[in-house]
Nucleic acid binder design. Sequence first.
DNA 1: TATTGTTATACTCTATAACTATA
DNA 2: TATAGTTATAGAGTATAACAATA
Lengths: 171, 171
Amino acid sequence: MDDRRPADDDRGVELDLLTLLPRLTQLGQVLHRSGLMERAMERVGIAIDRPGMSILVTLRMSDRPLRIGEIAERMQVVGPHVTRQMNELERRDLARRVVDPQDQRARLIELTSEGAAVADRYLRTILGWFTDALAAWSPQDRQSFGRLLGRFADDLTAHLAALDDDLPPAP
Amino acid sequence: MDDRRPADDDRGVELDLLTLLPRLTQLGQVLHRSGLMERAMERVGIAIDRPGMSILVTLRMSDRPLRIGEIAERMQVVGPHVTRQMNELERRDLARRVVDPQDQRARLIELTSEGAAVADRYLRTILGWFTDALAAWSPQDRQSFGRLLGRFADDLTAHLAALDDDLPPAP
DNA sequence: TATTGTTATACTCTATAACTATA
DNA sequence: TATAGTTATAGAGTATAACAATA
């Protein structure tokens, strides 16, 4: 650890970061706890739960069918969680399991045409709200926000991973 | 609603927004599902659950003791949830309930000195990680990010609230 | 023997309903 | 009778452990 002085420049940085924390909290609440997903699904006219919709979106964003394990990895959840959600999605004919010809143990998950349509309408609804909410933004601000948001997520992810390397978890 | 043409400018906006969605998802995952809170609590040497720590942080960010209902409102949860967490926090001597002299029904929640110290160390830890993760950022980028992040959360919140007004919920 | 996925079970977080005490 | 908080219960979301099938 370095021996830091509370220089002017340094304090300015700290203040910026202090204001960042409540804003991240606020953003998290808007995205998670405002009923945004539920309202979008209602508007789309589909009644499934959030993890189910997340799977549909994950598949829709991919350019190819995904394995159970790949979906779990992209969603940052464990395998059994995806399996259980998939049982319901398959029953509802929104996605289907196809045995991977390369490996009989694995299953490739693909959207049905209805599943793809649902995911499309859902994404379009959310995107429409974002578009409206940001209607007054300058193109520069929109572009900056996208860039900085991605960079922030990347840098924070990398830094947390680096912490893991410094202090490996107890076995 | 306006009669929109898919002009060049318009399409540019849509593309920006399409990239926004995965980035928001990624950010949400880093903040919620990367063990960030757990690791910070471990480093601070406190073993409480996430909602309990959120209450401590909420109180620490406030400039005065808060009622149960006020904490619930700021955390966007219902009252009973705060009550149950408070039982544990009070048992652990991290916060205490004081009857509101203005209203015998209400309780004012205040941090104990240990609770305040824990919240401080926790916030400092997280802020330290943010500082390190953003060490390579220009002051302009840091400032822009904070501004745009707050604006985005505000604008999205406002727009979703406006949707409610247009289409009031069924009773 | 290692890997992919499934089944069964348990835990965390949060909500709803019914209740108590005070206003 | 309305409001602040509590108790009891239920539900959504996710994890862990034990297992089956294939590699």
